[in-house]
Design a binder for these strands. Structure first.
Lengths: 148, 148
DNA sequence: ACCTAGTTGAAAATCATTTTCAATTAGTTT
DNA sequence: AAACTAATTGAAAATGATTTTCAACTAGGT
């Protein structure tokens, strides 16, 4: 999703396009991993040094509201965001070393969900699925270290 | 898992059994839902009014260390705990109304995991799976409200 | 070139969690 | 049973993240 496309969506919801917002969009859309509000703030500051951390928080709120961003849960951080790339239902594989995130859509949980619903009596409305591990890049580094 | 059993495990790790710890264990082991540190604190205070919130935090740290407690992620809270009931690999179904949690073990993700590993190059090490919805009790209440 | 509602940033307020430290206590040793 | 010691406790302070408040500013319509 390009910054322009995102900008267009914001405008469509009656939101103003400030340069601060553009800068935040650029950082989030350009990242391949999940970012905490503080990390986004630091990155945005390189391009827009006077931006306030509050603005980042507010922007994340807006993006979450419009479902353009999704939260990544991790071992420690649970308030880490990334652009929602495929629209609709999807999940993540997170690299525990570099934070890189890859999405996947087909999760084949329908059958499990039905079984659980039957067995527990819950009316199941949603689910959260995240895999964690090491991406190819980080695997390579670990292997390289082992040779030293 | 009974409080006595838990107490025994703690002792086995050279930890002292204080009445504060017993009180915290009793609350967590006696709950059928997930609890935030603050919620545990409030419940424990009924039985042990002079306990400090710090002690609750420390106890959670100890229990997490020993893998006796597990974290429940929710829409909002990500630092909510509950006793780990079945030992080993398992997941949760969380009621978004009352917070009740039911565990399940067989999650049938092996095949998905292999496929994802093959497709993305990740070495997958773990996963987080949580279903959310309404438990039978809360479903009943919603239905009852609809009749008024 | 206005006008106005939405937006911004600084500072303060709030809230959760961790650290520090002196006093207390469980469980062992004598 | 008294003494001992390392672990534990609670209050207070420190830290860190997030939210609120508010006056100044600005994007985008008129």
């Amino acid at each position: 999703m390009t910054v322009d496309r995102l900008a267009h969506i914001l405008r469509g919801h009656g939101l103003k396009l400030t340069s601060q917002r553009r800068a935040v969009l650029k950082v989030i859309a350009g990242s391949h991993g999940h970012l905490t509000p503080a990390a986004i703030y630091e990155l945005v500051r390189k391009e827009y040094p006077t931006i306030g951390l509050v603005t980042v928080y507010r922007m994340l709120e807006v993006l979450a509201e419009l479902d353009l961003v999704c939260r990544v849960h991790g071992e420690t951080t649970c308030r880490s965001y990334m652009m929602r790339r495929p629209s609709g239902h999807h999940h993540h594989i997170v690299c525990s070393s570099c934070g890189k995130v890859v999405d996947f859509a087909r999760c084949a949980l329908d059958e499990l969900q039905h079984r659980l619903s039957r067995e527990t009596g819950f009316k199941i409305q949603g689910h959260l699925l995240e895999f964690s591990g090491l991406c190819q890049g980080c695997l390579g580094e670990t292997a390289a270290e082992d040779h030293r």
